[in-house]
Design a protein around this nucleic acid. Sequence first.
RNA 1: GAUACGAAUCGGCUUAUCGCGUCUAAGUAAUUGGGCGAGGAAAGUCCGGGCAGCGCAGGGCACCCUACUUCCUAACGGGAAGGCGGACGGUUGGGAACGACCGUUCGACAGCCAGUGUCACAGAAAAUAUACCGCCAUCUUUUCAAUGAGCGAAUGACAAAAUGAGUGAAAGAGCGAAUAGCUGACGCAAGCCCUAUUCACUCAUUGUCUCUUUCACUCAUUCGCUCAUUGAAAAGGUGGUAAGGGUGAAAAGGUGGGGUAAGAGCCUACCGCCCGACGGGCGACCGGCGGGGCAGGAUAAACCUUAGGGGCUGAAAGACCAAAUAAGCGUCGGAUGUGGGGCGGCUCGUUUCCGUUCCAGAGCAAUCCCAACCGGGAACGAUCUGGAUGCCGACGCGGGUAGGUCGAACGAGGUGGUCGGUGACGACCAUCCCAGAUAAAUGAUAGGCUAUUUGAUACGUGCUGAAAGGCAUGAAUUGAAAGACAGAACCCGGCUUAUAGAUUCGUAUCGUGA
Length: 129
Amino acid sequence: MPQTFPKSERLCSKKILGELFKKGSMSVGTFYLFPFRTLYMHASESEPEGKSALPAIVITVPKRTFKRAVDRNLVRRRVREAYRLNKHLFDKETTYPPYIAFLYTAKQIISFEEIEKGMKLAMQKVVSR
RNA sequence: GAUACGAAUCGGCUUAUCGCGUCUAAGUAAUUGGGCGAGGAAAGUCCGGGCAGCGCAGGGCACCCUACUUCCUAACGGGAAGGCGGACGGUUGGGAACGACCGUUCGACAGCCAGUGUCACAGAAAAUAUACCGCCAUCUUUUCAAUGAGCGAAUGACAAAAUGAGUGAAAGAGCGAAUAGCUGACGCAAGCCCUAUUCACUCAUUGUCUCUUUCACUCAUUCGCUCAUUGAAAAGGUGGUAAGGGUGAAAAGGUGGGGUAAGAGCCUACCGCCCGACGGGCGACCGGCGGGGCAGGAUAAACCUUAGGGGCUGAAAGACCAAAUAAGCGUCGGAUGUGGGGCGGCUCGUUUCCGUUCCAGAGCAAUCCCAACCGGGAACGAUCUGGAUGCCGACGCGGGUAGGUCGAACGAGGUGGUCGGUGACGACCAUCCCAGAUAAAUGAUAGGCUAUUUGAUACGUGCUGAAAGGCAUGAAUUGAAAGACAGAACCCGGCUUAUAGAUUCGUAUCGUGA
């Protein structure tokens, strides 16, 4: 599996984002695993679940905890690299939701190694559901 | 050389792997190759402009902004050069007041003699200058001191263990004294006396003697009262003053001299100030000359006045393309029926039966009108014809959502050079293309190099020490750490704020060497 991260794997649609973050939605599942709170949403019945496409993800770093844009950029880039390098966990045999959101909830900037460890655990947990 | 301050510049370089955004080339496509990819502040969003939409006859008011001059600029609240003023430092003139020159630095630096307002605390007084204190002159009163005069009073003219050491008069007493006191008094009391003792230099003393008391006189001293003069003090009145009042952010020109009863630009010299014309400068302003004894507290970041400027909203502006779905509009086609529901009629009642959208035209019975014989006219309804609405389907249309394209990356552009200008800056020439995302790229991992900082190792030099060692310094090897402030979002010119470290220049201080 290539370690690319093209635009099709990034969740950009405002509509889906609004649905994903809407509280009380039936199709949205959530769990917390340091340092992420993960949201995932299964595809609706109308459109068939394409097994070939990889999920579209979104990464958020709150402005409340990191006031400066430099810090937010650094954290987001580290999280994205951790996802990109461990994307092989979503292979053909496993099932996974098409839309995933990773919310960075730690209060400090943590190193890439720790972020990668947490990302692996979070992805395994998503697959198991 | 170090430190401080100010100004300016820089704000690491690089390799590999895996990725991201964009441009470009090849390819039907998947994909592959190549180029480029954060900053001096990208930040704050404080000014100004471009650009865009909306609004808009012209003028005024209101509101907001700006405020020494000239220039630069697309524009600015930005910048440059200059003027003036303040602070600090240095040199210098002067007795002082106050200047002159140089350097650094700061200044929202138009106008409080257009008007209105405000001025805490302190202070005599905060704007009308003069109330108060004070100073001076004069008058009145009081007190005190000195001198003189008068009056009055007191005391004294001694002391004396008798007198001799004022006078006179009257009366009385005396002719050494003491060593004994107590009591309201009577009285009591070491019994009394002599001697003795002590005091007294001596002598004289029954006299023109001495003492006491009283009176008069004289003298002296003291006190009191009255008057006069002089001086001082206090209070009050009148007048003259504005020098002084030490407080304050700010006090009605300053300093020296003269002058005066005391003072005062009252006079004078210098400084400052005001006015006038003249000269210089584009101008702010400056210069000397002449005149005036001098008027005007501060505050406009108080209202306000003067001059100049300003339409509003911001790229989430704005322009364009455009699925799906629903409603809308247009055209065409179909059905205008059956069934059901509701309502009305018929009916005792009902599951039976009849009728039931709108418009136009034709048509006419009952009915009404004219006429009163025929006839003509009006008109509801049944009936017929046509149309519309409504229903279904197809196609199309405009608006417009998701989404997409443009705006939007060649520009008041960068670099270098020449020329003009004191400078900001401008002109010309050459050369370069240098981020362009849109839930938003510029990253992750593993190394290397250099600068700097720091640690270790052994070595050299200097100082110290007996030595071990310590301190300073130099170059070498090696280990660690590029770490500050901070992330483009339509673009540009500024301002402000943040910033580890490095470099250059200027000023000041200190040290060292020649």
